[in-house]
Simulated scan of single mutants.
Amino acid sequence: MVCLRCKMVVKEELTKLGIHFTTVELGEAEVVEDISAEQHDQIKAALLKSGLELMDDKKSILIQKIKNVIIESVHYSQEPLTVNFSEYLSQKLNYDYTYLANLFSEVQGITIEKFLIAHKIERVKELLVYNELNLTEIAYRMHYSSVAHLSAQFKKVTGLTPSHFKQLKGKRRSMLDEM
């Protein structure tokens, strides 16, 4: 689960099935009672209908937890990290970072760092489009060491500078207004 809507769907499906839960977070739900094999299959089928997947194996669950920590820290948290991201992830999941990095790369075919950067750049794009923060504020909020570092990484990923990206969005909007 990577969004609030997904959490709502899971809560709704669990409630429909009469399964009591204490929490539903990004990627996991904590149920009060033990569930039967039949209930497990019902949950799995209900989630599949909504485009969600019930994960059973520990590696898949850990991969999802890694993704959730990244998504939450990039898209939903405004707290600055006091340690580097690898240490933060290690502390959050209670696993050695090397193990997490190797597992993630093996299963996903991409490094944790590239996944993190992709999400950071998507978030930067959102912030540029909203036009509420300047580039310095965006760099600070997204934990870049400088505007130059953010700009270089943005250009490497998108092929555009942040300023050019912002101009393109403005041009596209004005062309729509002319219609």
Rank of each mutant, 00 (worst) to 15 (best):
M1V: 08
C3H: 06
C3W: 03
C3G: 09
K11A: 13
E13I: 03
K16I: 07
T23S: 11
V24H: 02
A29D: 01
I35D: 01
S36T: 15
A37M: 12
K44I: 07
L47I: 06
L48E: 15
K49E: 14
S50K: 15
S50V: 03
D56M: 07
D57T: 03
K58H: 11
S60N: 12
I63P: 02
I63S: 00
V69E: 04
I70A: 06
H75D: 02
Q78I: 09
E79L: 07
L81N: 05
L81C: 06
F85H: 04
Y88F: 15
S90V: 11
Y97K: 14
L100D: 03
N102S: 12
F104W: 08
S105R: 14
I110A: 13
I112T: 03
E113T: 08
E113P: 06
E113G: 03
K114H: 04
K114A: 05
L116T: 02
A118I: 05
I121K: 03
I121A: 08
V124Y: 01
L127E: 03
E132K: 10
N134H: 11
N134G: 14
L135S: 01
E137S: 11
I138R: 00
A139M: 03
Y140F: 13
Y140Q: 12
R141H: 03
Y144V: 04
V147M: 06
A148S: 11
A152R: 11
Q153A: 04
T158L: 10
G159W: 00
L160Y: 13
L168E: 13
K169L: 11
K169T: 14
R172M: 14
E178G: 02
M179Y: 09
M179V: 11
